[in-house]
Lab assay of single mutants.
Amino acid sequence: MGFKLLSKLLVYLTASIMAIASPLAFSVDSSGEYPTVSEIPVGEVRLYQIADGVWSHIATQSFDGAVYPSNGLIVRDGDELLLIDTAWGAKNTAALLAEIEKQIGLPVTRAVSTHFHDDRVGGVDVLRAAGVATYASPSTRRLAEVEGNEIPTHSLEGLSSSGDAVRFGPVELFYPGAAHSTDNLIVYVPSASVLYGGCAIYELSRTSAGNVADADLAEWPTSIERIQQHYPEAQFVIPGHGLPGGLDLLKHTTNVVKAHTNRSVVE
């Protein structure tokens, strides 16, 4: 069995187990497998329904001669939608809004960016022009300005110390501490036991640490421990890039980060 097929099978099995364990909360999309990078042309966006009122959005972007996937989250909030992270750029984010209108038909009224990198804030200006209120932590807003990236308009308070959590509509926002970046936030959907790890969490097929220019490698494993301790009931975990899975993604990420750190020390 090929690795790609095995990865998709694991996603399907995880979703099936969740649907059985929580039949009222989960209505997993039966329309197909989780979209992969090879299936999404740059400039297009796919939506994948995880649970009743919960979707991931998947886009792709060219970077350094390669094409990478990027995940975000959409959560229903009454007759409105909360968006977590842009679709990595203005063109993708405009396509995301169009796809949401086509498939869901509810307005996106608020959006949260989970850290300051372009795959999370690139497209904020498109959201703002569409009347979406954009939010991020003060740290993310400051770092985005320093980096020359787009800056969300509103500040999220109460997320300055490791372990801080605040309720934001249908989700809980959690600051686990520094990891992929010093400002990275985690998003949890309690009604569906869905954990969105953003770039602080890796997919299972990833074996290298990737972009760690703004990471705190020493603190990252401790931050992941905080996530595990705060959300032990999480059933569906979405990484910032690639295929979702279960809580095993947290341990896998820790292993990859520690291996990278150990290699760096040896070198």
Rank of each mutant, 00 (worst) to 15 (best):
L47E: 02
T36S: 12
E219M: 10
L10S: 15
D52Q: 09
Y48P: 05
L9K: 15
I17Q: 07
D118V: 08
T254L: 15
Y48D: 08
V237L: 07
I20W: 11
S161L: 12
A129S: 11
S181L: 01
V37E: 15
I40N: 07
Q103Y: 13
N211G: 03
L250Q: 04
N92R: 01
Y231H: 05
A136S: 09
S160I: 11
D85N: 03
A94N: 13
S31Y: 11
G245A: 06
Q229S: 13
H241Y: 06
A95S: 13
L217R: 03
Y12P: 06
P107R: 14
A144R: 09
G72S: 04
R76C: 06
S264C: 05
A51K: 07
I201Q: 00
E44I: 08
H260W: 05
G177F: 00
L217V: 11
I186Q: 00
Y68S: 04
N211C: 02
P244Q: 04
K8I: 10
D248Y: 09
A259Q: 11
I186N: 05
A215K: 03
A179Q: 00
V189C: 02
P232S: 10
L81P: 02
S162I: 09
H154N: 10
D29K: 09
G122L: 06
G169D: 06
F3N: 14
V126K: 05
V171Y: 03
L47R: 04
E267M: 11
S113D: 03
T109D: 06
H154D: 08
G198L: 03
S30I: 09
D216F: 04
V171P: 00
T261M: 13
A19Y: 15
Y68T: 06
L24S: 14
I58A: 06
G123A: 04
Q235K: 09
Y196V: 02
N184D: 05
L217I: 13
S38Y: 12
P232Y: 07
S27C: 13
Q61I: 05
G78Q: 09
V266N: 11
G32P: 09
C199A: 01
P170I: 05
S205R: 08
G32C: 07
L185K: 00
S137L: 15
S70T: 05
E150I: 04
G245H: 04
N255G: 13
A209T: 08
V187R: 02
A234G: 03
W88Q: 00
P244T: 03
T140Y: 06
K8F: 10
P170E: 05
Q235G: 09
K102C: 07
L243I: 14
I201K: 04
T253S: 07
V54M: 05
L243Q: 14
T60Q: 14
L106T: 09
D118E: 09
S264K: 15
G78D: 14
L6R: 08
R120N: 02
D119T: 00
A218Y: 13
S7W: 12
S191T: 13
K4A: 06
T261R: 11
F26I: 12
F116A: 08
P221V: 11
E44V: 10
S38P: 10
L73F: 05
K8E: 15
L250K: 05
S7C: 14
K91A: 15
T254Y: 12
A95N: 13
N71Q: 03
S70N: 03
A59F: 04
A213G: 11
Y188E: 01
E44L: 09
A25G: 13
S181W: 02
E80V: 09
S161F: 12
F63A: 05
S113Q: 03
E101T: 11
P176E: 00
L6S: 14
Y34V: 11
E150T: 02
F63E: 03
D64N: 15
V67P: 15
I84H: 00
G169H: 07
K91W: 11
L10W: 07
V257M: 10
S193N: 12
T109R: 14
P23I: 08
T60I: 13
A215F: 01
S22C: 09
V42S: 14
I40D: 05
V146T: 13
A218P: 09
A179D: 05
P170S: 10
A98C: 09
A25M: 15
L82M: 09
F26H: 11
V42L: 08
S162E: 14
T207Q: 14
S31M: 08
V189F: 04
N255T: 10
H241Q: 01
T114Y: 00
T182A: 12
L156P: 05
P69I: 13
T140S: 07
A144L: 14
P69T: 15
K102W: 10
L159N: 01
A90M: 09
P23N: 10
N184R: 01
V256H: 04
P244M: 09
H252E: 00
V265G: 12
N255K: 11
G72E: 03
S22N: 08
L82R: 01
I238Y: 03
D77I: 03
I201G: 01
H230Q: 13
T36N: 14
S181F: 00
D164S: 13
D29M: 10
I100R: 00
R46M: 14
V42M: 07
L217K: 00
G169R: 05
H230G: 09
L10N: 15
T14I: 08
V42N: 13
P138H: 10
G105W: 06
S38L: 10
F26M: 15
L127F: 06
E157K: 10
H252P: 05
I40C: 06
I104N: 04
F116E: 03
D216I: 08
Q61A: 13
H154V: 09
V132T: 07
R120M: 01
P239G: 03
A144H: 04
V67T: 15
V108K: 01
P41A: 14
G198V: 05
Y135Q: 03
T254N: 11
Y202V: 15
K91T: 14
A234V: 08
S193G: 12
I238G: 02
K258D: 11
S161R: 13
D214C: 05
Y12V: 09
L195M: 06
I58C: 05
R110F: 06
A213Y: 08
D119H: 01
I84K: 00
M18W: 08
R142M: 12
L173M: 07
G148N: 10
T222I: 11
V11E: 07
V37D: 15
S191Q: 12
V266P: 13
P107F: 06
V132M: 05
A90S: 11
G78V: 09
V266I: 08
L13H: 12
E145S: 12
H260D: 11
L24D: 14
I151G: 03
S160P: 07
Y175L: 02
L247A: 14
P107K: 15
P190T: 08
A130V: 11
S161H: 13
D183Q: 01
V28D: 10
I58N: 05
F63H: 05
G123D: 05
N71A: 05
L143Y: 10
G131I: 07
M18R: 08
V166C: 05
E157W: 11
R46K: 10
G32K: 09
S205K: 09
A200G: 03
N71F: 03
I186H: 05
D248K: 09
V28Y: 13
I201A: 01
V54Y: 01
L47Q: 04
S27V: 13
